[in-house]
Design a protein around this nucleic acid. Sequence first.
DNA 1: AAAGGTAATGAGTTATGCTAACAAACATGC
DNA 2: GCATGTTTGTTAGCATAACTCATTACCTTT
Lengths: 158, 158
Amino acid sequence: MLTNMPELSRPQPDGPEVPPDDAAAVNALRSAVMRLSRRLKHQRVDESLSPTEMSVLGTLARCGHATPGELARKEHVQPPSMTRIVAMLEAKGLVRLEAHADDRRQKVVTQTEQAEAMLEESRRKRNAWLAELASGLDEDEWAKVRAAAPVLEKLAQL
Amino acid sequence: MLTNMPELSRPQPDGPEVPPDDAAAVNALRSAVMRLSRRLKHQRVDESLSPTEMSVLGTLARCGHATPGELARKEHVQPPSMTRIVAMLEAKGLVRLEAHADDRRQKVVTQTEQAEAMLEESRRKRNAWLAELASGLDEDEWAKVRAAAPVLEKLAQL
DNA sequence: AAAGGTAATGAGTTATGCTAACAAACATGC
DNA sequence: GCATGTTTGTTAGCATAACTCATTACCTTT
């Protein structure tokens, strides 16, 4: 079923033709992403933290620090939304805002130790949720998800 | 639940609860799903149709017809939300509501030809988007996504 | 020094889900 | 046959979290 592999990575898209297999894949992907995102909303560690706020903390954990504008671009959110999110996180003591060294317009957001602890708890809860979901998949299916996860993350950043 | 897990921990059985690989995978998956869902919102064919409404149309295209309650369960949405969505779709002429044959409480939702045409245009636009995204992935990466897409769809339904 | 561009923010609006309460149609007890 | 409880869909009201537009502060270029 997955033996044939159409060539997607040709540099120039010399036609809007897309193999039907890929059309079905993107169809399934879109539907699954929308429904999964809805369910993920209910899987919060802290009820007072929205999924995007959690995602920002995750990004900060990876990047170390970032300006609000950078965060907005990474999360695909408009700058005003990020302003509110950062303000909320600061009010909860999860991030710290400092002045930018070179540009006083910008600010630098860094996570606090409290955020690190919360992320650890979040990982535990996500793992529990994962274990429950994984019981509905066989090993082969889960292997496919695991292989695709980093690619999906890259996809979300493109 | 953890005991119900299939053999997820292959080579290193000494992990704490969940193998680190899987923890990283679910981490990446969660982040990617949230961000992708946000981007998908901006990839609408018809600006006046929300992602969930599009998803309902897709479900109808697969199932042929369904009652509002069935749709609510499939989309993981509460019945009142589905009522509003169906009403919106009917107002736009994309679905038709008929009386249920056996149970006069229920209604049957079917898509119209107009919806079929819109879905076709939607596929074209999604394919264009896919082609653009695919240019950022190499062939191997895309193959992983394609293999995982059906599994993700199953995951969303569990 | 002035003009224009960029970063962050404030205010107000919109979108989209939820819960609670309700009406109509079915199912089951006597 | 009728009363009682259950299921289905709906209505109303509300909460959240995003958006757009406008404003302020700061940088950059001329």
